[in-house]
Design a protein around this nucleic acid. Structure first.
Length: 389
DNA sequence: AACATCATCAACCGCCGCCAT
DNA sequence: GATGGCGGCGGTTGATGATGT
């Protein structure tokens, strides 16, 4: 496969676009549409290649672009999406209307990466640096941590102590391995468990922003080459999502549940329910994502790495709740629906449970996704979310 | 004021997958 | 099946302005 034909063409302008060129391109596209990009420069009277025109339009001239700095809310969403999607900037951009992949990529590389590192979080794995160090030091923990030794960080330092990271090992992690380990899946369990650890008192209130983060990770299924615990919304949650006019709430109780039949090595469970019903927040995102609203991901410790409480709670996902044929595109959008529901002051109570027997059953194993299946369905993600532009 | 360094961002480059031939 | 055109994507570069020394 050779280079793009336009690259061979001579006498084509490169570099920054002049206002005149912009005007020509805008005029042409608004009048005729772009059609075939390779023909645009000729038809528009531009000495540019089609690719350059396309890029200019998509990244700068499109009328639906949102200019200006990213809001904290947008940054938080980018971080969370990056934890799931990695460097799939176009897919991340699809969740941020008016923002381009280029813009998001620039923000990530210039700003967010740095902030994460300053917090001791590896921007590639979304793990605290010390977490990696600990498991390198303690191979016996690797069985729990899914042999995730390949996720080493080459730079940065942690703001966690060894003791704190050691306590991470007490956090139950329900992972049934099938195939290769994945850091991505572990990341989210890590996020989740850390969150739970931080709220693991008999009854703990947390802000809905915290909860949004938690629920998001509970619902997102991810991780090529991973066999994760797939948190599946139960009927209560589904009803909650569909509830058109629930009472408002932004605070929730997190109540650790007894371990039932599950050994403590397995993951935490808890009952989350709203405790108060404050008025709705007026600053609702135009694109329906309210998580971490007005909240600095870095300043407010959404995922409080530094906490070291021993965790004893467990996640419960009943056998009947494990889908036999998981449809990724359906489940992957759940966090966003969920956040929409929170945004709409949806009253909800959600609960997930799994038993050890369930977990080790062949049936459950079969319900877990192979990397191939994951990848296949992952391609459907943008469609599932819907296009914003 | 001059210079160095950093941060930001627009644009380019090269690769890939899809599709038509 | 091979080839080439094309759109799209992610990584990288380079210009420019801001900030620090």
């Amino acid at each position: 496969m050779g280079r793009h034909s336009c690259c061979y063409k001579q006498k084509l302008r490169k570099g920054l676009w002049s206002p005149e060129e912009d005007e020509k391109l805008i005029h042409h596209i608004t009048k005729y549409g772009h059609g075939c990009w390779s023909s645009v420069p000729k038809l528009a009277g531009l000495q540019r290649c089609g690719k350059s025109c396309r890029l200019r339009w998509i990244n700068y001239l499109r009328p639906d672009l949102k200019r200006g700095r990213f809001s904290q809310q947008e940054e938080n969403l980018i971080i969370e999406l990056h934890a799931v999607l990695g460097n799939r900037w176009s897919q991340i951009a699809a969740q941020l209307p008016g923002r381009t992949d280029n813009e998001i990529k620039n923000l990530w590389n210039s700003s967010i990466k740095k902030k994460l590192r300053q917090k001791g979080i590896d921007p590639n794995t979304h793990k605290p640096f010390s977490e990696v160090e600990y498991y390198e030091e303690k191979p016996s923990a690797s069985s729990i941590k899914n042999n995730n030794h390949d996720q080493k960080t080459s730079e940065g330092s942690s703001d966690l102590t060894f003791a704190e990271s050691k306590n991470c090992n007490n956090i139950g992690i329900a992972v049934a391995q099938k195939g290769n380990p994945s850091s991505v899946g572990m990341d989210h369990e890590f996020f989740l468990n850390r969150f739970v650890a931080n709220h693991e008192t008999s009854t703990t209130s947390c802000k809905n922003s915290d909860l949004s983060g938690l629920l998001s990770f509970q619902h997102i299924n991810y991780g090529p080459n991973t066999t994760n615990l797939y948190f599946t919304p139960n009927s209560t949650t589904s009803a909650m999502v569909r509830n058109p006019s629930p009472p408002p709430c932004t605070n929730y109780e997190i109540t650790p549940r007894p371990p039932s039949v599950l050994p403590s090595i397995l993951a935490p469970s808890m009952l989350i329910k709203p405790t108060v019903n404050p008025p709705s927040d007026s600053s609702i995102s135009p694109f329906g994502v309210n998580k971490f609203q007005n909240m600095d991901f870095f300043e407010n410790n959404v995922f409080p790495w530094g906490k070291s409480e021993k965790l004893e709670s467990h996640i419960h996902v009943s056998e009947s709740e494990i889908p036999q044929d998981i449809k990724w595109n359906e489940h992957i959008q759940t966090p966003f629906l969920l956040n929409n529901s929170i945004q709409n002051q949806t009253h909800f109570a959600t609960e997930y449970s799994v038993s050890a027997a369930d977990w080790h059953s062949n049936e459950l194993q079969q319900s877990l996704q192979s990397a191939e299946v994951y990848s296949k369905h992952f391609q459907m993600l943008p469609a599932s979310f819907g296009q914003f532009s």
